[in-house]
Amino acid sequence: MKYGFNFQVMRDGDARPLDEGSAVFFEEAELTQPHLIPNVGDFVQATAVAGEDSHTITGRVVTRFFAYHSKDGSEHVNFCTINMVLEPADDFDWSKLIKE
């Protein structure tokens, strides 16, 4: 099964994640083991690079939604998209998580 990870940001006070400009998508190969899926409460920094442009989102995971897709009669078409919503963690001292 292949996995895709979609990270979205939900601002404080909003009922749902932002519709545009906040999603970062990653795809993981079937052979990658173990699959590194953040848990609710984990801190995440996700960066997508397209050419010279990059887009980074950071935050704490508040929800995870798993959507499974399958196609009969073909190999390697099972896919799971995991949508994770991040809340801003501006009040947290990120330097406590990692020393660069």
Rank of each mutant, 00 (worst) to 15 (best):
G51R: 12
L36K: 12
L36W: 06
D42P: 10
I57G: 01
F7R: 02
A23L: 09
N83L: 11
E100F: 14
A23I: 13
F79A: 03
V44K: 01
D93W: 01
F79P: 11
D14A: 08
V61Y: 00
V24G: 02
K96P: 15
F66E: 07
D42S: 05
A29Q: 13
M10F: 00
F92W: 11
D91Y: 07
L31I: 14
A48L: 08
D42C: 04
E75H: 04
E75I: 03
V24K: 02
A89D: 13
H69V: 01
N78V: 12
D12F: 05
M1K: 00
F26R: 01
E30C: 01
G73F: 01
N39R: 06
N39P: 03
D91E: 14
E30L: 03
Q33S: 15
I57P: 06
V62Y: 01
D91L: 07
K71C: 08
V77D: 14
H76T: 09
S70N: 14
Q33T: 15
Y68G: 06
L31S: 15
W94G: 05
I98N: 10
H55Y: 09
R60L: 09
Y3D: 01
E87F: 07
L18Y: 07
P38N: 06
S70M: 12
E27Q: 13
E52M: 13
L18H: 10
V9Y: 02
Y3R: 03
A50D: 10
K2I: 09
A46H: 09
A48E: 09
A89Q: 10
F43R: 11
P88Y: 03
L97H: 05
M84T: 09
G21H: 01
S95R: 07
M84L: 14
F43N: 09
G59F: 02
